[in-house]
Amino acid sequence: MSRVAEFLFRRRGGAGWHWTDVFTWFWLIGGLIVMFGPALWLVNSSFKTPAALAEFPPTVLPYVTAEAIVEGYEEPLQLFEVRNDDGSVRVLAEVRRLGTVAQMVDPANPGEIIRVNIQNRTPKRSIAFALDNYVQPFLAFDFFLYLRNSVFVTVVATLITLLTNSMAAFALSKYNFRGRSAVMMLIVATLMVPLSVILVPLYSVISAMGLFNSLWGVILPTVATPTGVFMLRQYMLTIPDELIEAARMDKASEWQIYWRIILPLTAPALAVLAIFSVVWRWNDFLWPLIVLSRKEVYTLQVGLNTYAGELNVQWHYILAMTVVTMIPVVLVFIFLQRFITTGIAGSGLK
């Protein structure tokens, strides 16, 4: 034991433990628990049956109480392990309970009623994952529709964002024209206008265009991201102008220069913007909440919020669907978080 401890607490250069080292590890381990714990608990809970979810104190593993169909009874009966006076244990099914005495039957011999004091019995339970939580929302509710809507919004908005932002960034980095700095100022100014400030007029614009209750009404206002234009412009400024001059000599059109030279060279920045855009659009909530009022056009976020806001919250479904909603973002996190963290550290955008 002391060897293990010695190995674990050995420090480089034989230096001792300073209080800052203790604090560092306290913060890191605490952070690990606090940051991942809640999400893991949610995933864990999503595999429990409604009965198991209603239990307090909650168990860590998803248990279900065992039931059996007994001859002569219409409903399935709950099984209990009953301790006999001689210490042996047998499994009985409960017919009904009167005060502290339960009337039970042996499934093998359903004719005979046995009276048992409830202190002498424990529910028979087994571990089982309630996969129904995941299946039912797709079959009985509209979650498949919401999922499809969310995917559509995310993919289309990201593609349009990449195209329009890169075109604008190209114009702002590689051309000299009158009013260029004015355009830049205008884009900077829009950084100051968050959605929450223009909700009412934007809603009227969308309605006037007939885009209320349409996924396009969710997509279009989000695609001209100032941060995207900025980021791509910064990147394109590093591409040497000589490349463009050479292409012009070879009679390439401006469109070809943009499409065949600039875009491929901007690929790393485009990739970062694409990741950001996917996360942004997948997570959008306030604007879809306003534009989408019919269930057929709900995105996952809006649908989830609606079901969670109902008086009689069906937590077992909500939990499972929250996990489903989390999946794409968790995948992005696992595979691409290095891109994002370096992207943020470099540019300070989110």
Binding site: L28, G31, L32, M35, F36, A39, V279, W282, N283, F285, Q301, L304, N305, T322, T325, M326, V329, V330, V332, F333, Q337, I340, T341, K350
Partner: peptide, 13 residues
């Protein structure tokens, strides 16, 4: 990455 994880989650989640 540990501390960054919740940043990516949607507000609804």
């Amino acid at each position: 990455a540990v501390f960054f994880f919740p940043v990516l989650l949607s507000p609804v989640v």
